[in-house]
Computed example of a mutant assay.
Amino acid sequence: TLYLRAKLKNVAYETLTMFIDSKRFLPYKIEAYAASGMLIKNLYFKEVKDFGDGIIRPSIIETDSPLYKGYKSYIVFANVKKRELASEIFSLNYMDKIEGLR
């Protein structure tokens, strides 16, 4: 289990609790908390799949929130491609160019 805290205060979630499958080194659940300590979102990583080329990842991410009971969102991955990415793309300055990565 990893306990993560944001460095900056202007983020959606101040703390995250990430539960990791110790055999696969993949997350299976993330709990996202507000600055007040209130749980505001859960993410569940499901159906681990071999996408080929050494890529083994959950193929479904399900989210829910205690604030909106009964509502869920899903992200379903049908295919994943391996790519090399420069570290600079993981910065705020790169956000306006993100569409070019598709």
Rank of each mutant, 00 (worst) to 15 (best):
Y94M: 01
L2I: 07
Y13M: 02
I56A: 08
Y44S: 14
N93P: 00
K72W: 01
L2M: 08
A6H: 01
F25D: 13
D64S: 15
G52Q: 07
L26V: 03
D64I: 06
G100E: 10
K41T: 04
K72A: 12
Y71P: 01
I98M: 05
S91K: 01
K29Q: 11
S22M: 10
E31V: 06
L85R: 14
Y68F: 14
I30E: 04
R57P: 02
R24W: 03
S59Q: 01
I89L: 08
F51A: 12
G100W: 00
S87F: 07
E47I: 04
K69R: 14
E99N: 03
I60Q: 13
N10K: 09
L101W: 00
I75S: 14
E88G: 06
I55Q: 04
L39V: 06
V76N: 11
E62V: 12
R5V: 12
S36N: 13
L8N: 13
G70M: 08
E14R: 10
L101E: 09
S36Q: 03
K49D: 04
E47C: 06
S36W: 05
K82V: 08
A32S: 14
F77P: 00
R102A: 11
K69S: 15
Y3V: 09
F19M: 12
V11S: 03
E99W: 00
M38F: 07
T1Y: 02
F45H: 05
I75V: 13
K49I: 05
A32T: 04
G70H: 02
I20L: 11
L26W: 00
N10W: 00
I56Y: 02
K72V: 10
V48A: 10
A34N: 14
N93D: 09
E14K: 12
Y94R: 01
T63L: 07
K97T: 00
I40F: 02
G100V: 00
N93A: 11
R83G: 07
E14L: 13
K29A: 06
E47F: 10
I98T: 04
L4C: 10
I56G: 02
D53Q: 11
A35H: 08
S87H: 14
P27I: 03
L8H: 10
R24E: 14
S36F: 02
F19T: 05
I55W: 02
L101H: 00
S22T: 12
K29V: 07
R83S: 11
E84I: 15
P58I: 03
E62N: 07
V48C: 07
F45P: 04
E88I: 09
A34Y: 03
Y44K: 11
D96N: 06
A34T: 03
N93H: 05
K69N: 12
G70A: 12
T1V: 10
E88S: 14
I20G: 05
L26Q: 04
E84H: 07
I40N: 09
A78P: 01
N42G: 06
Y13T: 09
V11R: 04
I60W: 01
E84G: 14
K49N: 09
L8I: 02
Y71I: 11
L67V: 13
K72M: 10
S22R: 11
Y74F: 15
L67T: 14
L26G: 04
K72G: 05
L43Q: 15
N93V: 01
E31N: 13
E88N: 15
P58N: 03
F51H: 08
G37T: 07
E62I: 08
P66W: 03
Y33M: 09
L8A: 15
E84T: 15
E62K: 15
G100I: 00
G100Q: 11
G54Y: 06
G100Y: 00
T17E: 14
